[in-house]
Design a protein around this nucleic acid. Structure first.
Length: 458
RNA sequence: GGCGCCGUAGCAAAGUGGUAAUGCAGUGGACUGCAACUCCGCGAUCGUCGGUUCGAUUCCGACCGGCGCCUCCA
């Protein structure tokens, strides 16, 4: 069985062939840190984290880099408004991003490069591009000359004429050609800047990824990922820079792009005011619910986040954790999942919806099994789920953790349960039901069984 | 204008040239003092219209509807 991935460059699914089977390299575009991140930023993080886990199951050494963009005009603008240094602002939000990603059960990437820590690498790359006449200096700017590259536009599938036909191209006096993009731009005295051969300034947006990939992963990497909107111009320009700096070598063999997340049927936008921040959602839902929702759709399709979907996902997880809760004393057996339908689905361009459906089947199998079969079923369920970063929590905690609604403590709940048990022992069923209703009103559901009464928040 | 995507049961979401996984919700029953959990059962002919084919939801075309990108953007 082998991994197949859809390559945006060729618009087709292809068998994955690493450049070096001993060291697989993946780079994913991370956030620009000037605010808390929204759920749209979470999708690539979750998707490529899942791919990272999958790759790790196949190859001995997977190098996964996800950058932090900590110099950018949006950062400068926000920092100026708050009257603080950009590094203070960007550090704060980078930390917040890490917290949010951890809450979604994303593993830390192997490498987390920061743009501002790679200024020399960037200026070095610019110098090489200028020397090779792919870039030129003009009025303190350095621009990439897109006409100097034959294949420019290949990833996004458009010609230079097509691009300019859109007519939203910025016309600037320093551009020789309207489609040229900035590698370096001058900074005013009150703006952040670094010294360079072209004066004090700052790098263009696309350059950091090219420079950081080159430094940390090499001239050509196996997989490059990001959101669909990055195809143009970001990744197109990244390809242009890296490819031209490296005499035509491809920067990545496989380009992967996740689809967009909409909110209640509408695109997230400032004008609609419907940005859903991850940390806000985390106040209402466990991170695992957000993760489950993201993985319940194929990564390339558009996904519509809404309350119904989140609630449904929560109940779906409840169902499986419910099975796990009843088998909490069973030690999961170490099993080989290589021959499972679920693993095959993941290998098939990360078909997480199918893998999740298999999780539900595994859970039922586990529920019906006993003895060795039970231990194996549990092992299979947890192993496949682990590849997706799901179901790794303690089931007891899953059900007893606060769900935002009820403030009643576990101790108070236990006191009421004891009271109800006494009522039951006294055949006072009206009293017992009263306690049940009282707890239900506070979002606590009781489940009687031979072993006693369990409770959960629901 | 250019490039591209999507339309599958109430909701969500896979999939295949030979009449469609899975989850949530709903519903009938078993279990239960009552419940909950669990178990058994129940639902779609795949936007519309043509074409290719022995046969299409799956391939081709047209149309209808929804959407994305075209230098802020995951």
């Amino acid at each position: 069985m082998s991994l197949s991935l859809y390559n945006s460059m060729t618009c087709s699914k292809q068998p994955f062939q690493p450049i070096d089977s001993q060291r697989v390299t993946m780079y994913v575009c991370g956030p620009t840190v000037y605010n808390r991140v929204h759920i749209g930023n979470a999708r690539p993080a979750v998707v490529f984290d899942t791919l990272y886990r999958l790759l790790t199951s196949l190859y001995p050494n997977v190098q996964y880099a996800r950058n932090i963009t900590d110099i950018d005009d949006k950062i400068m603008k926000t920092a100026a408004e708050l009257g603080e240094d950009i590094s203070v602002l960007s550090t704060r939000y980078a930390e917040a991003y890490f917290d949010d990603m951890q809450a979604l059960n994303n593993l830390p990437p192997t490498i987390v490069p920061y743009a501002t820590q790679h200024i020399p690498e960037m200026t070095d790359m610019i110098s090489r591009l200028v020397a090779k006449e792919h870039a030129y200096e003009s009025e303190g700017h350095v621009l990439f000359a897109v006409q100097s590259m034959a294949d420019y536009g290949k990833l996004s599938g458009r010609s230079l004429d097509d691009m300019l036909a859109g007519a939203r191209v910025e016309v600037a006096s320093y551009k020789k050609y309207a489609g040229d993009f900035i590698l370096w731009k001058p900074s005013a005295d009150d703006e952040p800047g670094w010294d360079s051969p072209w004066g004090r300034g700052r790098p263009g947006w696309h350059l950091e990824c090219s420079a950081m990939i080159e430094k940390h992963l090499g001239e050509s990497i196996d997989i490059h990922g990001g959101g669909q909107d990055l195809i143009f111009p970001h990744h197109e320009n990244e390809i242009a820079q890296s490819c031209c700096a490296h005499d035509g070598k491809p920067v990545a063999n496989v380009w992967m792009h996740n689809g967009f997340i909409n909110i209640e049927g509408e695109k997230m936008s400032k004008s609609l005011g419907n940005f859903r921040m991850v940390n806000d959602l985390l106040e209402q839902y466990p991170g695992e619910v957000l993760r489950y929702v993201i993985l319940s759709a194929h990564y390339r399709s558009e996904q519509n986040f809404g309350k119904d979907l989140l609630d449904s996902a929560w109940r779906s997880l409840d169902a499986i954790y419910g099975f796990l809760r009843t088998q909490v004393g069973i030690e999961a057996a170490a099993v080989d999942i290589a021959d499972t339908h679920a693993y095959a689905a993941l290998l098939d361009d990360l078909n997480t919806p199918v893998a999740i459906s298999e999780l539900h089947k595994f859970a039922r199998e586990m529920n019906a099994a006993d003895g060795d079969a039970l231990a194996e079923a549990k092992g299979r369920l947890l192993a496949v789920a682990g590849l997706m970063g799901l179901l790794q929590q303690d089931p007891e905690q899953w059900f007893t953790h606060s769900r935002g609604g009820s403030d009643i403590s576990a101790e108070e709940i236990e006191v009421l349960i004891a009271k109800r048990n006494q009522a039951k022992a006294d055949k006072d069923y009206a009293g017992a039901d009263g306690v049940r209703e009282e707890l239900k009103a506070m979002g606590v559901v009781l489940e009687d069984s031979r072993e006693g009464t369990k409770w959960r928040r629901g």
